[in-house]
């Protein structure tokens, strides 16, 4: 132990003043995370507003933390929420459990489930951290229509097989509305409410 030790400590402090700052000015100026950051989940929509989720529970199955609860149900002619026969009637993610691993995203067969960059998932109430379907669904963009409504883009096949094409058409038709970071959905020209 040398008598210079206390001064050495000041030296570290002094030197740090000339290095770039690593702290962030949260919450005044929150920083954008990396584009592929594993933030809050989102349930995406087809260009006409129908939900992409088919209630298959594969995300729930894949989840190592058992954070997802899904219940499927029948689409009927009177009430259609997604193309095809089945939709997710009840969808919940428990953010007290989620470890942000993204395995659910890998599992989703319809690209319904993706992750956004939103990371502000803290609360002092358990109940509020169980996100329900209405909180997870992507916002309705211009040209989208709140389900239930009939398939506006053709038959079920068109939604899946011609998805990219419909998307291109939409992009060519005009400037894109602001897309949520993690989704590629755009309003479709044919998706206008009738």
């Amino acid at each position: 132990m040398s008598f210079l030790d206390p001064v050495k400590g000041f030296g570290v402090t002094f030197a740090t003043m000339f290095k770039p700052v690593v702290t962030e000015d949260y919450p005044k100026h929150p920083d954008q995370p990396a584009p592929r950051y594993h933030g809050r989940h989102q349930l995406n929509r087809h260009p006409d507003g129908l939900e992409k989720c088919v209630g298959c529970e594969l995300c729930a199955w894949a989840c190592p933390a058992d954070a997802i609860f899904v219940e499927g149900a029948d689409n009927t002619d009177e009430a259609r929420f997604s193309p095809g026969e089945r939709y997710g009637k009840n969808y919940q993610i428990n953010y007290l459990r989620c470890i942000g691993c993204g395995l659910c995203i890998e599992a989703c067969p319809t690209r319904s489930l993706t992750m956004t960059n939103e990371y502000e998932l803290a609360d002092d109430d358990r109940q509020r951290l169980i996100y329900t379907k209405d909180m997870l669904l992507a916002p309705l963009l211009p040209g989208m229509e709140q389900p239930p409504h009939p398939m506006r883009l053709g038959d079920e096949h068109d939604y899946y097989a011609r998805g990219p094409e419909l998307l291109r058409q939409a992009r060519q038709a005009g400037p894109l509305a602001a897309e949520p970071v993690a989704t590629k959905d755009t309003p479709s020209p044919t998706g206008a409410p009738s």
Partner: peptide, 9 residues
């Protein structure tokens, strides 16, 4: 039973 559950549920 249609779409009511998955076996693992």
């Amino acid at each position: 039973y249609r779409f009511r559950a998955r076996p693992f549920d």
